[in-house]
Amino acid sequence: MATVERPAGAARGARASTGPELATPPLVVRRREEEETVVTFPTLVWREFLAGLGMFVFLMAVSIQVNAPLLQKANTAITPNPAKAPWYFVGLQELLERFPPIMAGVAFPTFVIVFMMLTPYLDKNPSRRPQDRKVAITMFTIYLCLAVAFVLIGALMRGQAFNFDPGLLFGHPHLSSPT
């Protein structure tokens, strides 16, 4: 095998200046093959089946117990108070309360999406071990915590007129803003 590949690799290396790296991938694959492998069928398929079954049973139980919300028929004349976005966008709504719209509604989300897509190209650290990736892991954890915090605040602690009211968490809405 190796004797067959070497001339091909050498020929490729002669064409491209970055040849050595391009010619090596097969060797990397061969080294990894030393790790123990298993057949995906039935090993993996069985696990997937069990995971899917578990999820289905869970969803069926929830669906029997809890009805999906359905309020009064849509009416543009009556604005509910507070009016909230779906929960996964409520973090954005929360940002809109705190920052100018151009920042919260446009700059932040665009930055997050673009930065997220560029992550693999910006992160030049080749190691996958957590102890070598402290900066990346810290940054991502801060981002996750902020995202979750904003969603939770927006969803659970925003009362009438989207006013901040942590009392809602404990079922005691603040009484100073009656409407």
Binding site: L71, N75, P80, A83, L96, A104, G105
Partner: peptide
């Protein structure tokens, strides 16, 4: 579902799109 939850959540959500320059 076209209920109050639906139409106002979408109103709030799509209002965010307005802020793009």
């Amino acid at each position: 579902p076209w209920d109050q939850l639906a139409i106002w959540a979408i109103t709030v959500g799509t209002n965010m799109a307005k802020y793009a320059p």
